[in-house]
């Protein structure tokens, strides 16, 4: 699975766990992931793997989402 697909899966999971869409959007935005009005990934700024690592760091603000994201990246054999 490529980093962009992983980022999309983390985004999808985040929205199934949390009602706080603005908070999710802000974390993805400051990590370099732009979301469109439908909360889908519209652009990734720079190397997707580097963005994924930054996103994982920033998700610490939403512990439950980060816990789930750790499981997603582990499933595909990535160890950040």
């Amino acid at each position: 699975m490529n980093p962009k697909a992983i980022i999309e899966e983390i985004l999808d999971t985040a929205q199934k766990l949390s009602l706080e869409k603005d908070r999710i959007r802000a974390i993805f935005q400051k990590s370099g992931v732009t979301l469109d009005g439908g909360m889908k990934v519209s652009a990734i700024a720079g190397d997707p793997m580097a963005v994924l690592k930054t996103l994982m760091d920033n998700l610490a603000e939403m512990a439950v989402v980060k816990i789930s994201a750790k499981q997603i990246i582990r499933k595909v054999g990535i160890n950040i």
Binding site: T13, K16, L17, S18, L19, E20, V64, S68, Q71
Partner: peptide
């Protein structure tokens, strides 16, 4: 963080997470 009383379509993911 939702207020659903009963398990719905997203609950398998919420549970396994």
């Amino acid at each position: 963080g939702m207020t659903d009383l009963y398990a719905g379509p997203d609950y398998p993911l919420q549970l396994t997470s």
